[in-house]
Design a protein around this nucleic acid. Structure first.
Length: 909
RNA sequence: GGGCGAGUGGCGGAAUUGGUAGACGCGCAGGUCUCAAAAACCUGUGAUCGCAAGAUCAUGUGGGUUCGAUUCCCACCUUGCCCACCA
């Protein structure tokens, strides 16, 4: 990922990723590949502009200086870049094509103007995309985001949601990044349900993923922004109250609306009621700002028993709670009968909980026919002793007989439950009897008769549903006295003909029924929102659009590109939602602003908003392939020859910003047949951030940045680069520790003194060939830290002996990608060529003699030096005659003799 | 609250599909060189006991599976990252 050239210059965290791709590129080149390893500058956007405003230097100049500084620093690292392909997003020759791609989006109807409330940063004075808002604050400056209605250009990224989601599967990316994109796109499958409004020819459409809970819906909530409220203004009895609430919530920032998570607010709309389409029940309509206008339909059905937010709302406003889902509680009673749900429980029921103290697991039985498992339950007659009954039933079902009674827990005395078959509320007297298994001795049981096929031990966690009932008591109790709703899936109750169905099935059946009567359908929703693409700032690509009084919005013809950003003296943001480029008092702007309509030739004005920082980086990987001298040319054949990018290295923080945007643009280019690939970056590897010595992210504001300049001077680029990679696993964060570089420096100094005199030795050949294999594999898999330690290890073991010329050549080649400067210097003085990556000679990969450890009862007692591929018989003889081993086998009796070829001998006595 | 990951010496971290835990580097200790120091080089370095050979204990805690577990299973503790009223 190309850098944003900031004024502070590089700190030691930056070169880690650059070094990694440099090592990889050099390695691949030595292996005969044609590698493009380019570098460029992402230079439009807020940081440069804010710096410019603060220091009163034009951003153009700022960028020029910063780029020069960055470039010099990178050159000091001796990175092998293809500098002739260097790009800069602020170069008009470059952004001509950024604008060109925007026109393609516009032609396809994927870019549109809109004026709706968007995220606005009061400090940066510009609108922002959803992706740029982190926890209600501006990603750049941390200011609290406001909602503001501004004229905006929007890109329809949602139209590509499904493709962006599906194509993730084929990418060789870190799974967490893919998962983050999936979550961000946030596809959810559910149902839309239409609630008619009583006596009025209007309806409310809600979106839900839990159609199975529809019978538990006791009111409907609209977002304050919902259109229907305005439309039904004169039917609403308490309009004043409603209007007041709408205004109040409009003034709340997103942060305020989300921060007050616990206290729900809302107003009941009096005068109108909704009708639940599944049962015709009349229910009230509320407005509340916990419902988001921009997700789903801006309205939800409230099911307090099975949704935490609705539950809190109901508690606050005393709305009745009706439960329709019960945990899937399967009990197996003494008759061998299995019944889902809670309704099987009798007036006097017992549930036996048998704990195995050895492993803290609980006894269950499974029922083959229904693929269910459960604790043992049963009914008791009036004069029966519950403990004895339970013991008897456990024994009959499982055979276990040695049970210690621990306690009886009448947790659910007179708990109400709904009897599904009889359709009535009932009271049951439950007793949970806790036993512990004293020993695992068993009686034989008749499998056929009991009809059980398996006895299981499950952990408490696996039996969560059961323990919900035991510990939180009944669901009815849970809802009445508890803190939260039951949001899990389960079995339907109180739901007419759908009673007894499982949640998933019920969702389907209920939606199908609604569909049949025109009150609902299956529906898909996304969290992803369209991309707010315009910025009310100066330092960005002008959007190539002209506003004509006669023709309206007219795109600038391709031949007139680029629309060059005018050089102006005053570029401070206005803060009122307009761009600094609309300031007609500046003659330079005025000259640029007024133009002719490309369509009718009449007077027209240019679009004054600019593109966001992400625009230039959305296609820059293509620009490297287009660059020829100072020009760019779209040569599809050449582009397709190289794309997709084989290896892309950068930080994980771009997971939902750059990496999503670039994929979106690439797909448009694919649809335009401008590129032949569906995805821009085939393989992605994340570079772990280098933290400051204080453990925080290196940043100018923390004052913990460390400049590489003095380290380069003291230790040289090779030592510093090697240390950057040696500090830890490449994708893992690492704390900077200055002292570590010394080790690399010492090593390289030792290498510099290398000399050869001897002939080849087999011993060295074995060492070298092992190293070639290890280092090759490690570079391919980006395990640079272990590659370097293998190189050091190789050096140490040969250096204590003697080097041959071939040894030195192979060794220097292995080291070359990491330390090009040092190895080049040595190789030229020793007259050795580093031209090609050494080939592995398999002959040397297997040593003649190997060391086999001998374990006795799991402990290593002896090590035998034996020839490779020794047979079990041969080694058995060696073991039998070994005195030391004999000492550990006083009885002379070997119970078990295990031999894993070329690995280990394990003896049990 | 949801999703994903991580816990190994004084420190950063190594350990193919379960098979000699602690590679490699830093640091530390002792030594060489030096009038001295720095740098450099050599040796040692998980803990406990022992003169030693060696033994015992050790990969967050507690269990389990196995001849054998850092690795697999279960529970718990600690910690990191991402998302978060998405219905």
């Amino acid at each position: 990922m190309f850098p944003y050239p900031s004024g502070a210059g590089l700190h030691v965290g930056h070169p880690r990723g650059y070094t990694a791709t440099d090592v990889y590129a050099r390695y691949k080149r030595l292996n005969g590949y044609n590698v493009l390893h380019p570098m460029g500058w992402d230079a439009f956007g807020l940081p440069a502009e804010n710096f410019a405003i603060k220091n009163k230097v034009h951003p153009e100049k700022v960028v020029k200086e910063n780029v020069a500084k960055f470039k010099q620093q990178l050159k000091n690292f001796d990175l092998q870049y293809d500098w002739d392909k260097e790009i800069n997003t602020t170069d008009p020759n470059y952004y001509r094509w950024t604008q060109f791609i925007f026109l393609k989006l516009f032609e396809r109807g994927l870019a549109y103007e809109d004026e709706s409330p968007i995220n606005f940063c009061p400090s940066c004075k510009t609108g922002l995309a959803n992706e740029e808002v982190v926890g209600g604050s501006c990603e750049r400056c941390g200011s609290t985001i406001e909602r503001k209605k501004i004229r905006q250009w929007i890109l329809k990224i949602t139209e590509y949601a499904d493709r962006l989601l599906e194509d993730l599967d084929g990418l060789d990316w870190p799974e967490p990044i893919k998962e983050m994109q999936r979550n961000w796109i946030g596809r959810s499958e559910g149902s839309s349900i239409i609630f008619d409004i009583k006596d009025i020819d209007k309806s409310i459409e809600v979106y839900t993923t839990r159609a199975d809970t529809l019978f538990g819906c006791t009111w409907v909530v609209l977002a304050p922004e919902h259109q229907l409220i305005q439309n039904l203004k004169d039917k609403i009895d308490n309009w004043d109250e409603v209007e007041k609430y709408i205004i109040k919530s409009q003034n709340k920032s997103d942060l305020e609306r989300t921060e007050l998570q616990k206290e729900k607010t809302g107003v009941e709309i009096k005068g109108i009621t909704a009708i639940n389409p599944i049962n015709g029940e009349e229910i009230p309509i509320w407005i509340s700002d916990y419902v988001l206008a921009h997700y789903g339909t801006g309205a939800v059905m409230a099911v307090p028993a099975h949704d935490d937010r609705d539950f809190q709302f109901a508690k606050k406003f005393n709305i009745p709670i009706k439960y329709v889902i019960e945990p899937k509680f399967v009990g197996i009673d003494g008759d061998g009968a299995i019944k889902p749900g809670l309704d099987f429980m009798r007036r006097n029921a017992i549930c036996a909980i048998v704990r195995n103290p050895k492993n803290d697991n609980y006894l269950c039985v499974s029922w083959k026919k229904f693929k269910m498992h459960g604790l043992i339950t049963g009914g008791i007659e009036k004069d029966e002793d519950p403990i004895e009954t339970a013991k008897r039933e456990i024994r009959e079902e499982t055979g276990y007989k040695n049970l210690k009674f621990i306690k009886s827990e009448p947790l659910a005395i007179n708990t109400q439950f709904y009897h599904r078959v009889k359709r009535e509320n009932r009271w049951a007297h439950f007793q949970f009897l806790h036993f512990e298994l004293e020993n695992e001795e068993k009686d034989e049981i008749d499998q056929k008769e009991s009809q059980l096929h398996d006895i299981l031990w499950k952990s408490k966690n696996e039996l969560k549903d059961f323990f919900t009932v035991f510990e939180g008591q009944y669901i009815a109790d849970l809802l009445q006295n508890g803190e939260s709703a039951f949001t899990g899936h389960g079995i339907l109750v109180n739901s007419a003909e759908f009673d007894g169905l499982e949640s998933e099935e019920a969702k389907k059946k209920i939606t199908e029924k609604l569909k049949a009567c025109g009150h609902g359908d299956f529906s898909v929703n996304y969290k992803l929102r369209d991309w707010v693409f315009s910025r009310q700032r100066y330092w960005g690509e002008p959007i190539p659009i002209v506003h004509c009084k006669k023709c309206g919005i007219v795109p600038v013809p391709e031949k007139d590109l680029p629309v060059i950003l005018p050089h102006v003296e005053k570029y401070e943001p206005t803060g009122d939602g307009t761009s600094p480029l609309s300031n007609e008092k500046d003659p330079a702007i005025l000259k640029w602003l007024n133009t002719k309509c490309p369509k009718c030739g009449g007077q027209a004005k240019r679009e004054t908003n600019t593109m966001p920082q992400w625009a230039g980086s959305c296609w820059y990987y293509i620009a490297y392939l287009m660059k020829d001298g100072s020009k760019y040319e779209w040569n599809k054949e050449k582009i397709d020859q190289w794309l997709p990018v084989d290896l892309y290295v950068g930080g994980a923080e771009h997971a939902v910003l750059h990496l999503l945007y670039a994929r979106f643009w690439h797909k448009i280019l694919y649809d335009e047949k401008l590129v032949g690939s569906k995805e821009p970056f085939q393989k992605l590897i994340n570079v772990g951030t280098i933290l400051g010595v204080d453990g925080r992210k290196m940043s100018k504001s923390f004052g913990n940045t460390i400049s590489p300049d003095s380290l380069l001077k003291k230790y040289g680029s090779d030592a510093l680069k090697m240390y950057e990679l040696y500090i830890g696993p490449f994708s893992q964060m690492a704390k900077w520790d200055q002292n570590g570089i010394v080790g690399m420096h010492r090593f390289l100094q030792k290498v510099e003194k290398i000399s050869y005199n001897d002939k080849n030795s087999d011993k060295n050949n074995v060492i070298i060939n092992k190293a070639i294999k290890k280092v090759s594999n490690d570079i391919e898999s980006f395990n640079f830290n272990t590659a370097i330690s293998a190189i050091i290890e190789t050096f140490n073991s040969i250096h204590s002996n003697s080097w041959s010329k071939l040894d030195v050549q192979s060794f220097l080649t292995l080291l070359y990608p990491f330390a090009p400067k040092t190895t080049t210097k040595i190789s030229s003085s020793l007259k050795i060529n580093i031209k090609q990556w050494p080939e592995i000679n398999n002959k040397y990969l297997q040593a003649e003699n190997i060391i086999i450890p001998v374990q006795i009862n799991g402990k290593i007692r002896e090590q035998l030096v034996v020839k490779n591929d020794i047979t079990e018989k041969e080694i058995r003889d060696l073991v039998d005659s070994n005195k030391k081993i004999k000492q550990w086998i006083p009885s002379g009796n070997i119970k078990k003799f295990i031999f894993v070829k070329n690995k280990i001998v394990s003896i049990v006595v």
